[in-house]
């Protein structure tokens, strides 16, 4: 099976997992879910890291550097702000 086909299998199954997990989310958690999920989409950082691995000032490297910065803002900011929000959700004592 080609890499592309495997990728399509993985994608389709993961979409179903996503639907199954998230369907029953209570409205209270919509905002943290969104910012948390958003941080997860920063996983593209893994791709970004291999885009700037020399010191050469080339277009590819500069785009890679920008990608690392964007993705890191997304990951660090996203997880931190989600934690900040979730810390506030308290139950009645």
């Amino acid at each position: 099976m080609s890499t592309l086909l495997i990728g399509i299998y993985v994608f389709a199954l993961a979409v179903f997992v996503g639907f199954e997990i998230i369907t029953k989310i209570p409205p209270t958690l919509h905002t943290p879910l969104m910012s948390g999920a958003n941080a997860v989409s920063g996983i593209t950082i893994v791709g970004a890291l291999s885009c700037a691995v020399t010191l050469e000032i080339s277009t590819a490297n500069l785009l890679g550097l920008a990608a690392i910065v964007f993705a890191t803002v997304n990951v660090v900011g996203g997880f931190m702000v989600t934690d900040r929000m979730l810390k506030m959700f308290k139950s009645k004592k």
Binding site: G7, F16, G18, I21, M34, A37, V40, I43
Partner: peptide, 25 residues
């Protein structure tokens, strides 16, 4: 989509999860 370009299944999985979650909302 980037996961497809790089042939990285973890990117595909995470992207699909977030895509599904956003769509449900």
């Amino acid at each position: 989509a980037t996961g497809f370009v790089l042939a990285n299944n973890m990117l595909i999985i995470c992207g699909a999860l977030v895509g599904a979650s956003g769509l449900i909302l």
